[in-house]
Amino acid sequence: MEIGVIIGSESHMKYVVKVFKENEVKEVPKPEDCSLGKFVKIGEKIVGIISNTTIIDPDYGRRIYGNVEELKMFIPDYLDEREKLLSVVAIGTKERQGVISSTPFVGDTVRLMEKNEIKSFHEVDGKLRISYLPYLYEEPLYDAIVSEIVEELSSIFPERKSVLEGVRKMAIWQRMKEVYK
């Protein structure tokens, strides 16, 4: 399912994605499709993870009365300019986890990954690997992102649930240690 499009980047690893709205795609992504920790594919090869969300209101909160139909008719630009943006950290390509060599470009489509794609991305020589966490560590919501990753992977690799739980605990502990140091 396509959820957005690349509109810019903050670094080699981190990209800004504008979430599709009505009329842009057939199936408009629901809020839960764009939530933290979702695995996404940028273009054909690059694998990323949603690390943050921002929204833009061009009218800075000015109240405009009227129902949606009326607003569409009288001030359509206002609705067009309200955006939901996602931060996506590139965590590898479909072949391997790690720093990407070729970067996505503006306009590349971003879509949610299927379970089987997530499984194959996380299997290295038939064994579960999550070697990309260091690239997410600087994210303000690092522990929450790891929790979401663990949740997702536990459903795909139920036999590794307890080890994944250890990974989650460690992420929370690392963040707690930083906050309360």
Binding site: Q97, K127, L128, R129, I130, S131, Y132, L133, R160, S162, V163, L164, E165, G166, V167, K169, M170, W173, Q174
Partner: peptide, 21 residues
Amino acid sequence: YPPIMYSNPEISPSEIALILG
């Protein structure tokens, strides 16, 4: 290894470390 990696007696820290690459 961080002490938290020893919190589950059934999982060794090296197992968690291995998953983390």
